[in-house]
């Protein structure tokens, strides 16, 4: 991803390499007796795309809103572009773009009218017709906000977040409710922001989105940081690949495991469906197929599967439904 950066963006990044765009340190926020954010610490490198992922109620929005200056931390501290988001709010506001999780417009305002209004509060706003076209807001430009679809409201919010040419944008669930085309359009926009030197912090429920867009992913659960790293680091972390195949039900799994390298595991989650976990390499595959040949088993649909970020996420945060 990083190789495609224009030179100007790279210089900008080198110049700010020592100072992160966002620093969250031991952050604590409570609602009554509930700790929504519990000693959270992470950094966002300038010029990067950072995804904050976690189940509902994990504290993502609370953390974003603290960085945006809406909430006073109950403990710890937050620095945004080297400044305090509340004390230095007046200086930060022109430099930081925000997409709220929902709302953020008059109900009777027309889409493009709202965008123009936000633009009029900035010194060097983007070209409105070009931005409208880019985000596909042309057809609903005269529609009142309350009559826009959820996806249109999201795209308008995104346009409002970037129209002032900020250095840093906080996007809270930028693709929630978008159709696949709009989702890809948003991904392209985030990548273009990044290559123009804009730092992007986004939250998402979609792991493929985080995997695709983010330089760094922070997984939070119950207000705590449970994992951090690049998508590939997270996917490699403690990760075995798996081999799946179909064969007659009730194979002798003890015999099969004995034929495989040390530390391998063989499960049969459904009758006739087999999953082999362990250090999956060509030797394991060879040993597996050799055992099958020796035992007259035809392994159908044999596939080596890579762990996805979604698997990592579910392993870290559990598979049970959240209230």
């Amino acid at each position: 991803m990083g190789a495609a950066c224009p030179v100007s963006a790279r210089i900008l990044r080198l110049g700010t390499v020592s100072s992160p765009a966002v620093e969250v340190e031991d952050l604590v926020l409570t609602y009554g007796s509930i700790r929504a954010v519990d000693r959270l610490t992470f950094e966002v490198a300038a010029g990067s795309v950072t995804a904050v992922v976690g189940p509902n109620g994990a504290g993502k929005t609370t953390t974003m809103e603290t960085c945006e200056g809406y909430r006073q931390p109950h403990g710890g501290r937050v620095r945004v572009l080297g400044a305090d988001p509340r004390r230095d709010a007046a200086r930060l506001r022109p430099r930081v773009g925000v997409l709220l999780q929902s709302g953020g417009a008059w109900s009777g305002v027309r889409a493009v009218e709202m965008l123009r209004h936000i633009a009029s509060l900035h010194a060097h706003p983007l070209d409105i017709p070009a931005l409208v076209e880019r985000l596909g807001l042309g057809s609903c430009g005269r529609t009142p906000y309350r009559s826009l679809s959820g996806g249109e409201q999201r795209r308008l919010g995104l346009a409002m977040a970037v129209v002032g040419r900020p250095e840093l944008v906080f996007l809270d669930e930028p693709t929630a409710g978008l159709d696949p085309q709009a989702r890809h359009g948003t991904w392209d926009l985030v990548q273009e922001l990044r290559s123009s030197g804009v730092t992007v912090v986004l939250t998402t429920h979609y792991m493929d989105e985080a995997e695709r867009l983010a330089d760094t992913v922070h997984v939070i659960d119950s207000g705590r940081l449970v994992a951090s790293g690049s998508p590939s680091e997270l996917m490699a972390h403690g990760a075995e690949r798996t081999v799946r195949f179909w064969a007659p039900a009730g194979l002798d799994r003890i015999s099969l495991r004995a034929a495989l390298p040390e530390g391998s595991r063989v499960d049969e989650p459904l009758p006739g469906s087999y999953v082999v976990r362990g250090h999956v390499d060509p030797h394991l595959l060879a040993a597996l197929t050799a055992w099958c040949a020796a035992n007259g088993v035809l392994a159908e649909g044999l596939a080596v599967e890579r762990r996805t970020l979604e698997d990592v996420f579910l392993d870290l945060t559990g598979r049970e439904l959240r209230p």
Binding site: G108, H117, S120, L126, D127, E167
Partner: peptide, 29 residues
């Protein structure tokens, strides 16, 4: 016109922000 996202932040002058806000709210009223 092409879109240039390269950061160039800045506030509009205070008087023009007040005027923009007043015009907008009056239109909506």
């Amino acid at each position: 016109m092409t879109l240039v996202f390269t950061p160039r932040p800045g506030s509009a002058p205070l008087t023009s922000m007040v005027a923009a806000q007043a015009r907008m709210e009056a239109r909506l009223l």
